[in-house]
Design a protein around this nucleic acid. Sequence first.
DNA 1: CTGTTAGCGCTTTCAC
DNA 2: GTGAAAGCGCTAACAG
Lengths: 332, 332
Amino acid sequence: MSITIKEIAEKANVSIATVSRALNDNPNVKESTKELIRNLAQEMNYSPNFVARTLVKKKTNVIGIILPEVGGEFFPEIIKGVDEVAYQNEYHVFVASSHSERNTVESILGFMSKSMVDGVILMLPSITDHIRNLIKRTRIPIVLINGYSKMEEVSSVGIDNFQGAYTMTNFLIQNKGYDKISFIKGPDINSDAKLRLKGYKAALEDNKIPINHEWIVDGDFTIKGGELAASRLLSLINKPSVIFAANDMMAAGCYRVIDQLGLTIPDDIAVVGFDHIPMSEFLNPKLTTVHVPTDEIGRKAAKLLLDILENSETTKPQHIKITTGLIVGKSC
Amino acid sequence: MSITIKEIAEKANVSIATVSRALNDNPNVKESTKELIRNLAQEMNYSPNFVARTLVKKKTNVIGIILPEVGGEFFPEIIKGVDEVAYQNEYHVFVASSHSERNTVESILGFMSKSMVDGVILMLPSITDHIRNLIKRTRIPIVLINGYSKMEEVSSVGIDNFQGAYTMTNFLIQNKGYDKISFIKGPDINSDAKLRLKGYKAALEDNKIPINHEWIVDGDFTIKGGELAASRLLSLINKPSVIFAANDMMAAGCYRVIDQLGLTIPDDIAVVGFDHIPMSEFLNPKLTTVHVPTDEIGRKAAKLLLDILENSETTKPQHIKITTGLIVGKSC
DNA sequence: CTGTTAGCGCTTTCAC
DNA sequence: GTGAAAGCGCTAACAG
């Protein structure tokens, strides 16, 4: 097995307490013995047992991040952001994916709260009552990443979906002169999706453009969904002049269909998206979309969590909304 | 704090040993007391302290996976593959990124070997002597993911880069009739990149096509690098008729430059890539590329690691090479 | 400055 | 069937 402080203590002819102190650079240890012990440790290739230390200190210096599914278009960026902040503060990050399986979030959250991590960042497409309960029962600090949590008890950070969609719609109307703007929705359960729809509607209203329900079609955030929705919109008698897809993936689907029909973007029909995923830069013509500062989300979430961890929950839950930006391509 | 078996023991008027046994479904406990204890635990919202258990059992049931950088084009898929297998075997997966910082791999590997995980899957672009030593010193089982390890001591899984590049080149020659095939290399330190170059050269040789060194240009696996390389190749007096980019990102860069020059793919110049990243499907025309079964890599690596973990290192290191496939698009 | 001692929460012999 | 007790490796009073 691994070697322990006990063995070092024997070799050094000191007590294990002294070894522990020396290794932790406790000022009350003579420099010479410190030196001795450190060298011995090095020689013996000692590495401290993290688990044992955790058991007594009750602090792992690890934060967990649970994603609905590792991968996707922006999770990596979020993780990166979290990692960055954590690293600076001498925390480690453990990522766990929940496979989108219902019970798995539960199992992972449970696992993480069994003292493996000091706190967790939880990213969920939407919050069900079940999950709400789960979160309430969990004793370790949690920070939520999502559009709109409705959970006052837990800190959260998310992007301002409403503002993003509003800005885009407004831009289409006021800067580009469009008035026949259609919209492809996201999944009904997804709260980001819902807020984007709201933003779209609000912008139309504020510009006194009546809402045409024929132009608001279902989508599911996938390419396939975008294709379906685009086909539907383009087969209408009264066609829209722009398609605002609630995310870039669906916008990509629109591109495909439009291409197949031999139509041209933006002359025959314009397309705009939401998310600014890397692929959007490669669509031809380049997609106009709403930029989501993903790494910023990760960084903010990590900061929030570390803050709670360090200032031992004195602070009450905060809710941070991150403003989106507009990426103007050639697709409208 | 969290409640412990001690408190349950008090309420149930039994010893903590019995509680422990009951909770672990030990057959030597009366069914009635088991029942009692389980109910009590439920009521009291007990959740076992994982750290304490680990300290005595010396087994965490967690495997770690260290990536050079979370994100990238295929890491998510790899993680997914690992997760899948791990989950089926009741293991958890912790992901740590090394930020591409040299010392961080070290720190994370150290961290993970401090008894936090039972084994780790390590993915590295290339293996330096430094890392080689690090790996040798680490006491926990490791499985490497990379193209070519040169490390007999440690199990590894990787894709057959040589075969992939060879197949592609051969395909270009024999099925498509090209003979002026240029190649954009990857970073020099990257072993995958080196093997791809070798495969390309070997295929040319086997088809008795002389190697034109003017047509083998430097690249760095980035879009920008692809742009630079493409500009260079297209400014040659003796132009190639195909560009084989060592990865899809660089192929995407080629598309950009070719587009800007007003040339058409594949009529003026053909482009093929390697990796089959999602974006490759969206390039117009669709990119012909080498498919890398990323999730398969993850799955295989996880299986290998779990095997080592369960059969306590009786098995000697294995080296698995995963065969790539050809994705035929419209770019050649 | 250093040693002794008592845990952290749990599992696991060894008795009874 | 169940309890007592030892101990996993480490830290943190409390003494000296």
